[in-house]
Amino acid sequence: MSGRKFAFFKNRNNKGYLFILPFFLVMLTFQIYPIISTLNLSFTAPLNMFENKFVGIANYERLLTNEIFLKSIFNTWFMWLLGFIPQMIFALGLAVILYEWQVWGKDAFRTIFFLPNLVTAASIGVLFAVLLDWQTGTLNHVLLTMKIIDEPINWLSKSGMARGSVAFIQWWMWFGNTAIIVMAGLSSISGELYEAAFIDGAGKVQTFFRITLPLLRPILLYIVITSLIGGLQIFDIPRVLTNGRGAPDNAITTMVLYLYNQAFKNFNIGYAASVAYTLFFMILFFSIISFKLISGKKQKGDDEI
């Protein structure tokens, strides 16, 4: 019996499967099974905390007509773009300055810019909640002492301010990290190209747009895609900045925060699962789009050569 059972592995070439088996078992248990189980859940609605009933695609129908979910999509994109665009500009600028101009103490600057990224996002959210607090916050205290305002301002109750804060934190946390990646990209551009450009009489600005930027494209693609995936999943900072329910008035409810609140505050697991699947396809879709947009031209160029 046992001889026949293991006959498959007698073949030396098949032994390799034994070695990759642990990985696949872990992946099946902790990745594939949850993914399938989530899909299954997304077609159910809870009867109580214990039992679910099958409801077909009702969750998805509800989701796509839900005001708060649509708002959360807008919030997510809005806050991501509001943080990402300045982050990109800052990172490019800083990287070029630090790399090309050989600024004195550039390693120290690099470290300082990177520091906010070392602190967990949740702690930074708490920190900003304390700074912006209405009654006891540092910002109001400073402004009051400097006589800029007469009365404390309830910052986090204003939707614009709350969204702005999230975007600002995202920018502040990530521009250093992005700058370092861009610098790594810059160092891979051959110095000969710059030399040639210099000899041909190109200025700094021309060199930047004609040489640096095009050759940075793969790195920029990497940054855009990782930031997009991270940005669409933003959760921790909105979660801790206000009361966790996306206050004020769902202004900073992001898609993942919405998912979380549905699953773990309203205990509507099936509905939350349908949010998760919608989010998954959305990220997939936009990742493909951004990949095509940025790398498309280059591949065409490759073909011509």
């Binding site: 839900n66 005001e67 708060i68 309830n154 109750s157 329910r245 206050a247 008035d249 549905q262 309203n266």
Partner: peptide, 29 residues
């Protein structure tokens, strides 16, 4: 949540009440 928005002057009474209806649609559809 809606009372807080009304008390802060961020919303009118009607907006706050509408906001509650929207929020409840999410909790008890």
């Amino acid at each position: 949540d809606q009372v807080e928005l009304y008390a802060n002057g961020e919303k009118t009474k009607q907006e706050a009440m509408d906001g509650f209806v929207t929020a409840m649609a999410d909790i008890l559809p």
